[in-house]
Computed example of a mutant assay.
Amino acid sequence: MEQNREAWRVLIVEDDERLAELTKEFLEKNDLVVSLETYGGHAVERIKNEKPDLVVLDLMLPGEDGLSICRRVRPFYNGPILMLTARTDDLDQVLGLEMGADDYMSKPVRPRVLLARIRALLRRVSENQSAAPVEPAPTDSARLTFNDLVIDRSMREAWLNDASIDLTSAEFDLLWLLASNAGRVLSREEIFTALRGIEYDGQDRSIDVRVSRIRPKVGDDPVHPRRIKTVRSKGYLFVKEA
């Protein structure tokens, strides 16, 4: 975590007031500034007005559900969104990630695991901020070119046939990781650890969902990918000459 800055601000949107208060108390003991919102119908305005560094967002909420909130705030809110749900359906996780969530946890949530996920997401924000100067000057090491695809780490942008690609922060991080290791198979464990700083639990599907979203954006065929290939039982391979 970055030392010379004000404490990170977290907004928890959770209708279970007791759970929200207990979570708030635990996180504040670990140097986070936490505010609460128990009504989903107020969440979008709270996020817009307060601009928290990170949002912990429950899926099932009164007034407006977490998926709708996530979809509505993404056009103006670039901070990490960690989604929570008491349901175990994989479809919820897929939909949450497609709506723009950065991470996903199933209830009941262990406080220390939640804290680890939050810290990993905030660490990524801190690293991205320090790695992106106001007027970045691309260098060979910060820019990768694969025929019609160009990826620039310092600008955190990518282009396909000279057209800018619309990528979320999490999608860019994954694309850069794969592309900078072009020609090498990366396991889900390696990807998960590199991007989140925590061990892969063998069940999280967020990496698979993001790969499926990135493929069409970089001109790949989702059914028969040629650029980002799935290597059965091993992981993903970014092909140098696709």
Rank of each mutant, 00 (worst) to 15 (best):
D208V: 06
A120M: 00
A120F: 06
L115S: 08
A116R: 13
D152K: 01
T139E: 12
R210H: 11
V94C: 07
D162A: 04
L121Y: 11
P133T: 00
E135F: 08
T168F: 01
D162I: 05
I207F: 03
S164F: 10
I207C: 05
G100S: 00
F192N: 06
R196Y: 13
I207E: 04
R153K: 15
D166G: 04
P216M: 05
A101W: 08
V113F: 09
Y104L: 03
V94I: 15
R112H: 10
S169M: 10
R124N: 10
Q203N: 14
G96L: 02
F172I: 04
P138I: 10
P133F: 10
Q129W: 03
F172K: 09
R188T: 10
R123Y: 06
R215E: 14
E199Q: 15
S130N: 11
M99R: 01
D152E: 14
P138E: 05
R156K: 13
A137P: 02
L174D: 02
R156E: 07
S206G: 14
T193Q: 12
A170P: 05
D102F: 00
L167P: 09
I207K: 02
R205I: 14
L144D: 12
K107M: 00
M105Q: 09
V94L: 13
T145F: 06
I198N: 09
M155R: 15
P216C: 10
D204C: 06
L121V: 09
S180H: 14
E127N: 14
V209P: 08
E98A: 00
V134I: 15
R153V: 02
A116V: 06
D166T: 05
L177D: 09
S180Y: 13
G100H: 00
R119W: 10
G96S: 09
Y200K: 03
A120E: 13
S106Q: 14
A120G: 15
V94P: 12
S169R: 07
R188M: 09
A179D: 09
T193Y: 02
A142N: 13
R119V: 01
F172S: 07
E199D: 13
G197T: 08
R112Y: 06
L174K: 08
P108V: 00
S169L: 10
G183K: 01
Q129K: 01
A116D: 15
V134G: 11
L177S: 09
T193R: 11
L115F: 13
D148P: 08
E157S: 15
F146I: 08
E199C: 10
L178F: 08
R213K: 04
D204I: 07
N128A: 15
F146C: 00
W159L: 00
I214C: 13
V150H: 12
W159P: 08
R124L: 03
L174V: 07
R123K: 08
Q129P: 04
A163I: 03
E199N: 14
E190T: 01
N181T: 09
A158E: 08
D152H: 02
E190D: 10
S164D: 05
D201M: 05
